[in-house]
Amino acid sequence: MYYNRRALRALVYRNWFLVGVLMAILFAQLRPTIGASGGILMPEWTAKYLSVGVIFFISGLSLRLDDLTGTIASYKLHVFVQVFTFGLIPIVMVVLCSLVFAHLGVDQWILKGMITVSCMPPPVSSAIVLTKAVGGNEAAAVFNSVLGSFLGVIISPFSLLLFLGSSAMLSMVDSIVALSQTVIIPLVVGLALRHFNIITRHRSVPLSEVGQAVLLFIIYTTFCDAFLTHDSPMNALDVLFCVLLVTLLQLAFLFTSFHLAKNMELFTAADIVAITFCSTHKSLTLGIPILRILYSGYSHFSQITLPLLVYHPTQILLGSLLVAPFKKWLYHHTARIKFRP
């Protein structure tokens, strides 16, 4: 009995982030008003700006300037991630929604939401944290998150215009200012502190765990808003279809991205880890403001936003489940190359 309890504690300790995700979702369902927009935690500021800024500040402390500047030369990796994110995923989603899902009885506004998700830029937090947790190329993940976020300010609205016919356009000036405040400035400050050795004791702080804890806060506030979204009624079948489609599509995109990058034989194992997460994840932080501008006042706003609200935590859940096997794959792949005769 004692051995079983000890084994259970060890299992929980190894997978504390996944346990934390489940607990955050459960608490969000029990007390959604605490972490919802307008609640006492003020997630419209703390989750959207402060938390994202903390994650990029930690990334700056964790990186050497040489690593970040060195990854700029890895243009093939960056092209792969951005083309997969802004090109392949939207095209596949439009084809599937038009030719397959529409004939399965899925709500047309949820399908529009699925297409909307596919046009979103890569995230500014989850892909970096997961890449770092596995031991992948964190510098490449940071670079592509920053690059994808800025490209998304321009590409995402035009993609929505192309695929959905929306006439609304995103305020690029406001978005660039917000990105600078939450991404660029914290990252540069962290890099500067590391580069000039202003902070010399940060290595004693578990930066990866701090970043994952901040991400748990973002997950909690995300689900709080999701559980309180009742703009337009949705039946249980619509929600079930949405969750099922999002999960299956993410698994398919993860599988495709991983094997494409692996079979191209152009990237290291650490690069493939970063590619897999960065090219398949979508940003809730940037996505929600884009949707609010494009579809503000729509009676079907909840259906449009539902896929994004499902996609964000699902990508973190699937990513957290992949951390352990990815670590094992990265270790064996690196060891095989290292000890190859």
Rank of each mutant, 00 (worst) to 15 (best):
P186C: 01
V142T: 00
D67N: 10
I185L: 05
F301Q: 11
T222S: 13
F17T: 02
F253W: 07
S37I: 04
M172Q: 14
G70H: 05
V310H: 08
S149D: 09
P123H: 10
S166C: 05
G190W: 13
V94F: 08
T285Q: 08
G165K: 07
L321H: 06
V83Q: 11
S279D: 04
Y75A: 14
C224G: 03
L254T: 01
S208L: 15
S166V: 13
L99P: 14
M42D: 15
E209H: 08
Q82D: 10
S149A: 10
G297C: 01
L260P: 10
L161S: 09
R201A: 15
V94R: 08
T280G: 07
Q303V: 01
H312P: 13
P121Y: 00
V117S: 01
N137K: 13
I25C: 06
S51K: 07
F163A: 10
V95N: 00
V52Y: 02
L284E: 14
S145P: 14
L266Y: 10
S167N: 12
I218G: 04
K262T: 07
F150P: 13
C242T: 06
W329F: 15
T276Q: 08
L187I: 02
W45I: 10
T116K: 03
Y220A: 07
W109P: 11
L160A: 00
R31G: 00
S125V: 05
K262Y: 15
F27G: 11
F158P: 07
L8V: 09
L161R: 13
Q212R: 10
L41Q: 05
S296N: 14
L161M: 12
L111T: 00
F86C: 04
L160Q: 09
I40E: 13
G297L: 01
L104F: 07
S159G: 12
G148N: 04
I176R: 04
R5F: 11
L266S: 09
F56K: 13
V246L: 12
N15C: 00
V177M: 04
I115E: 06
R201C: 14
L164S: 00
R64P: 07
L130C: 05
C97G: 00
C278Y: 02
Y331N: 15
P233Q: 12
Y220W: 09
P43C: 04
I176W: 04
I155L: 07
I154G: 12
Q212W: 08
T200E: 12
